[in-house]
Design a protein around this nucleic acid. Structure first.
Lengths: 206, 206, 206, 206
DNA sequence: TATGAATGAGTCTTCATTCAT
DNA sequence: CATGAATGAAGACTCATTCAT
C-alpha cells in the first residue's frame, strides 16, 4: 500500500511538473493534471492541499539548495576569495561561484525552469527577485569592507550596478537553460562570462 | 460619428492598458475593462476582435519603434561605429545604442512594462525573447564581417555569448524600470554599464 | 430586451425562492436553480453577484418592513399605548402589535419562512436573533420609564423574561406559518395569545 | 479487543459531538472528525454507518429520556396534578414539569444544543417539531377528559394554542441555553415563567 | 480492527466571447 | 454604433463514502 502511495505521489508530482513546465503555474489546470496522471482529481487532494503546494513541493529541493548556497558565502574562505577577485589577483571566486550555479542547472534543470519562468501566479512568483535582492545585499556588504581595506580603489557609481550584475548572473543561467547548450558550449560560455565580468569589474574599479 | 468612435476606442485602450499594467494580461478581465471604461462589454468587440488584439494594439507603437531600431542597424554609419567599438577606438556606438533604448523607456514606459513583465498569456508573451534573438543574429553578422576584416583579433569562444549580452541589455532596461530609478541614477547606471561592456568586450576580443 | 431581463430576473428569484424554501439556503444549489429556472448558470451571475445576494434580495422587502416596524415603536402614541397596556387599562397595544405581525405573515409568508427557518449558512442567518434582541431592548427601555412613573407596580424578576416573550412572539408567528392556519383559526389563536399575555403580564407585575 | 473498540467508539463520539456543536451537523466534516480524533477516516465507518448515525448515536440518550418523560405523563398521578393545575388549585404540576426539563438541561446540555440548534441536515432535524407535536397531542387528550369532568369551565378557542405553549416551553429552554444563564438567573426566569403560564391559562379557561 | 487509497459527484464562481436587437 | 442577455466551458477545491488489504 505504501508502495502504491509513493507511486501515486510521484505520478502526481511528475505530471504536475510536466504541466507546469508546459503551461506555467497559472494556466496549468488541476483537472488536466488529474486526467494526464490518471489519478482522480479529488485523490490528488489527499496528497497535496493545493495546487500551490504541489508547486512548492516540486521546487523545494532547489530552493533549499539555493538558500544553502547563500549561506556558504558567509564563511571566511569566500570572503578572502572575494577580496582577491576584487583586487584583481585571481578570478577563482568567480569560477567557483559560476561552477556552483552550473551544478544547480545540471541537478535541478526543470525546477530552475519552473522557478525562473513558470512561477507566475504561485506563492513563489517573487522568489527569484527576492533571491537576487539578497545576493545583491551580500555583495554590497563585501564591497563595503573591501573599499575600507583598499581605499585606493575607486568604487562603483551606482549601487544599482551591483544589482544588475546579480540579475545578469541569473540571466546567464536562464539563457543557458533556454538554449539547452551542450556541456562544451556551456564551458565556453562560462569562460567568456568570467573573462568578461573580471575585465569589466576591474575597469570600473580602477 | 467618426469622432465618437475614436473617443471610444481610445477609452478602451487606455482602460485596458491600466488593467493590464495592474494585473497582467492573463488576469486582467474584459468585464473589468468594460466596467471601468464605462463602455459596454460587447461593444468592445466592435472595436477589437479579442482581448489579445487590444493588447497587441496597445503595444503596437512600441513594437513598431523597436523593429525600426532593428532596421537602423543595417545602415553604413552603424556598421562603421560598430567596427570602431569592436576595435576599441570608441564607445560611441554603445552610447548611442543605449541612448536609443533609454528614449524607448521615456517614450514607451508603460508599453515596455507591458511587454517585459505583463505579457504572459498573450500572443506576445515571447516577443522579447524573439526580439533579442533577432538582435543577436545581427550582431553575429557584424562580428562575422568584422573578423574577416581584422583577422588579428581573436574572437569570442561562444556565439552564445553575444546572445547573452543582448539579453543583458534588456535585463538592464528591465531593472531600471522595475526599480524606478531617477534620471540621475539612470545616468550613473548607464555609465557603469557602458564602461563595463566596453572593457569586457575588449578583454574578450584582444 | 428590458422585458426579457425583468422576466429572467423574476424567474431566477422565483426559482431560487422555491429552492431555498425546499432545501434551505445552505443545501440549495446554484446548479439546481439554474436547471429548474431554465437559465444558464453563468447568466445568473449577470443578475446577482452570489447565492447570498439572491437570498438577501428575496427577503429584502421583508427586512425593510420589519425595520420600519421597529422604528414605529419609537413614537409617542406607541409609548402611551404601552403604558396603558402595562397598567392594565387596555390591551389595544398588544392587539395592534400582533395585528401588524399578522399582516407581515400575509404579505411576506415565504420570505418570513426563509428568514425564520431557511437562512442557515447565509449572511442573514442571525437576523432573527438580532432582531429579537433589538425588540427586547426597546421593551426594556419602555419598562424602565414605566416603572419610574408607576413605582407601585412590582417589576419582573429577570430581564431575561422580556427576552423570552419577544422570542415567543416570533415562535407564535413561526407556528402559525408552519401549520398553515386558516384566517379564522389565526384569529382564534391570536385572541388566546393576547388574552394569555395580558393576564400573564398583569399577574407578574401586580 | 473489546476494550479498544469501546475506547475508539467513545473517541469518535466525543470528537464528533465537539464538531457538531461547533459547526452544526451539515457543515461538520467527517475528515475533520477523523483528523481530530486521531482515528482513521475509514475506520470510523466500522463503527458507524454514516455521519447521520453518529449524530443519532450522540443524541440517543437524550431522545430516550425525552420519550420516557412523554410516557410518564400517562400515569395517574400526573393526570391528577394536571386537573389541579387546570382548575387553579395548584401549580405543582407546572413546577414539576419545568423541573424535569431543567434536569434535562443539566444532564444533556450538549445533546439538547445539538438537537435544538445543530441538527439541520440530519435525519433528526425535525425531531423537536415532532416531539412538540406529540406533547401537544397529550395535552389535548388531557384537556378533553378535563372538559368532560368540569363542563363549567370554558375551553380554549384554538387547539393550536396548546401547541404554541408546548413550543414556548422549548423556546424557553432554548433561550436559557443560548444565553448561558447562571443557576440563580435560571431560577428567577422559571419563577416568572410559571407565574406567567399559570395566570395566563387561568385567564383563558375561566 | 484498522489503514491508506480511491472515488465521483458535488460546491460556488469566473471567464472570454457571441447573439439578437 | 451600441446594448443587454446569454452561453458553455473552465477554475480550484470539498464531500461523504467505499474498497482492498
Amino acid at each position: 500500500m505504501q508502495i502504491k502511495k509513493d507511486y501515486t505521489r510521484e505520478e502526481i508530482v511528475m505530471t504536475a511538473k510536466r504541466e507546469f513546465l508546459k503551461n506555467g503555474f497559472a494556466k496549468a489546470s488541476m483537472r488536466e493534471i488529474a486526467k494526464r496522471s490518471g489519478i482522480g482529481l479529488s485523490n490528488i487532494y489527499n496528497y497535496f492541499k493545493s495546487k500551490d503546494e504541489i508547486f512548492r513541493c516540486i521546487v523545494a529541493p532547489l530552493i533549499a539548495k539555493m538558500q544553502e548556497m547563500l549561506l556558504e558565502h558567509h564563511n571566511v574562505k569566500y570572503h578572502e576569495q572575494f577580496l582577491k577577485y576584487a583586487s584583481g589577483e585571481s578570478d577563482e571566486m568567480m569560477t567557483e561561484h559560476v561552477q556552483s550555479y552550473m551544478e544547480l542547472i545540471s541537478h535541478y534543470r526543470d525546477e530552475l525552469e519552473l522557478i525562473l519562468f513558470k512561477a507566475q501566479g504561485s506563492s513563489l512568483e517573487n522568489f527569484i527577485d527576492d533571491y537576487t535582492e539578497m545576493c545583491t545585499k551580500q555583495v554590497l556588504i563585501f564591497m563595503d569592507s573591501f573599499s575600507k581595506k583598499y581605499p585606493s580603489y575607486s568604487t562603483v557609481k551606482s549601487s544599482f550596478t551591483y544589482h544588475v550584475h546579480t540579475v545578469w548572473m541569473f540571466s546567464f543561467i536562464s539563457e543557458i537553460m533556454k538554449h539547452r547548450l551542450s556541456p562544451k558550449e556551456i564551458e565556453n560560455a562560462i569562460e567568456d562570462y568570467i573573462k568578461f565580468e573580471y575585465a569589466g569589474w576591474r575597469a570600473i574599479l580602477n
